[in-house]
Simulated scan of single mutants.
Amino acid sequence: MTKRKYLVTGGTGFIGSALVRRLVKEGNDVRVVDNDLRGSSARLSDVLSSITLIPCDVRDADAMTEASRGCESILHLAALNGTENFYNRPDLVLDIGVRGMYGALEAAKRNGITEFVLASSSEAYQTPPVVPTPEEVPLTIPDPWNPRYSYGGSKLISEIMLANYNRDLFKKALIFRPHNVYGPDMGWEHVLPQLILRAQTQIASHPTGKVPFEIQGDGSQTRSFVHIDDFIDGLIIMVEKGQHRNVYHIGTRDEITIRTLVEAIFNWFGREPEIIATSLPEGGTLRRCPDTSKLEALGYAPKTDIAKGIDHIAQWYVDNAHLRPTA
């Protein structure tokens, strides 16, 4: 990878910290912007001496301008993610998503930074018309009154902003859409940590026999999960080889039902679940799996299967369950 001066927003988050660590490992000059609203600088404890960490709110264009001065590339990952946040704090999700994007773009404009990489999301196209889903599908928000779409809406808007703001400045503008990235210390508001910790609790209260376990829907809905190590491999490949004004899906084509996922988690615990179906929250997507052939053509090849990945993440959450926020 070409050695450069990078500014990473959201760099103390789950994906951001993994990206920062890789950029440092490859000899780059890295500045990290985050206010630790959802991230934690502790994630970067092993590389703090090798980076510049700047406490900053991405919505503050002046602060972002100062933080990015002298940088050659902005990797914009800052956002308020997590399904619980989509439903409970949609105003803040939108505020950080849209005003934060403006702050980052304005900083690039003021400092003449010609490379900008945006973290979008599969939520930007919500319910796909075809699965596996290629990058060129229409971006859709089916119901603007549903707070579930606050995050997807902010990402849709951000993609449009990158395409049209600083249009003549950027020599390399790239968008990547993560698809269910997972791994240790990914946060507490996502499906895998929540399933793992609920399974642990239910197992403790049912020491013998099948363990009753409620899931949303009947479990036939599918997702495709990508381990953080594979994801960062793909992201680095895209940053280095991706084409100007292009979008890249980063994930895997290994589709799994939620029922099968729950069974795999219980298998890790050495127990068997009695799965109890419940209603799906309004706005959920029944099937999602990316077509990653565009990135694969650049050399992307994920290696971690879900069984190995569950072992990796489940052990971390069981060992660190005491760190889970109580409020």
Rank of each mutant, 00 (worst) to 15 (best):
V8K: 07
T9Q: 02
I15L: 04
V20Q: 05
L23I: 02
R31M: 07
D36M: 10
R38S: 12
D62F: 07
A63S: 14
M64R: 00
S73E: 15
I74F: 05
L80W: 10
G82N: 02
Y87T: 11
L92S: 13
V93T: 13
V93D: 01
G97V: 11
A108R: 06
F116I: 01
A119S: 15
A119E: 05
S121R: 07
Q126L: 12
E135F: 09
V137H: 09
L139C: 04
I141S: 06
I141F: 11
P144N: 03
W145A: 14
N146S: 06
A163W: 03
N166H: 12
F176S: 07
F176I: 09
P184L: 00
L192W: 13
R198W: 03
S205L: 03
G209N: 02
P212L: 02
I215L: 05
Q216E: 15
H227E: 15
G234E: 04
L235M: 11
I237Q: 00
E240N: 09
G242N: 06
Q243C: 08
Y248E: 08
I250Q: 11
R253Y: 14
I256D: 03
T260S: 15
G270D: 06
R271T: 08
G284W: 14
L286C: 02
R288L: 15
P290E: 03
I310C: 01
H312L: 05
Q315I: 08
Y317E: 01
